[in-house]
Amino acid sequence: MSQALVAGVVVGGIYGLMALGIVLVYKGARVLHFGQGEIGTLALFVAWWVVDERQGLGQPWLLGAAAAVVAAAAVSLVFERLVVARMVEASRLAIGVATVGLLLFLFSLELKLWGASPKYLAPPIEGLGPRVAGLHVSPTQVLALVSAAAIGLGLTAFLRRTDFGLGVLGAAQDPAAARLVGVPLARVSVFTWVVAGVLAAVAALLVEPTIGVFTAGFMTRFFVFALAAALIGGLTSLPGAFAGGIVVGILDQTVQYWSLGVPVPGLSVLAVFALILLVLLVRPQGLLGRAAA
């Protein structure tokens, strides 16, 4: 049981990292960004291409990671400028649908460029890592957990303590009023989408070593759990997203542990959806969300 808890916290950290991006876009644009997971997958493919010695350029992992982050930022920037910026008058739902279009486009692009065979990207730090409650926690998993917490806290501080960050929050609540105090909405929008893309890339780079291999669509299945984390955390709360990720991770791993041998597949997913339903019924603003935000 304690092993399930440890595994849950580790997996939850990764869900939390992705959930931060979901919350950031939702705070900044009031849109659910369904393409975020696939931006992460595309970034992984770029990193793999830079790092792989046989089919790629054979460069160090750090260079591959940097290329992945740049690629994710570039895709997000192009999507924001070509699609989101031209949908200023459109409903938020329409922009949400456009992000589904981005997901499908990137999925197809990955298949076209790199095929359907699984790819392997080495972890940033090799080794077994510390043993906690009888379970080896890999250095990459520790890094993922620490990164998620640090990025969550850092983003929260940035949004609350800097003028531009406060402008991002203000623009999410009332774009016209934000313009009337001088907040540059175009820059706010670019910031929001690009940072969300970068977060997806970082999450992808940190989660892949735990799974081992990846294919097109790899990060989109994590997106469902990350969305659950964001909803449970409150959709507008960055610390809430991280906490939600931990809750979802622990629930996921615990139910998997208890349902070993039970001939019903997908019980952990069912448990996560039940938790979302419960939170939405009992506390619609989420664990740490603010009703007025």
Binding site: Q173, D174, A176
Partner: peptide, 9 residues
């Protein structure tokens, strides 16, 4: 019109 303060701030 309608003040438009930022309610969540």
């Amino acid at each position: 019109q309608g003040r438009h303060v930022f309610p969540g701030l």
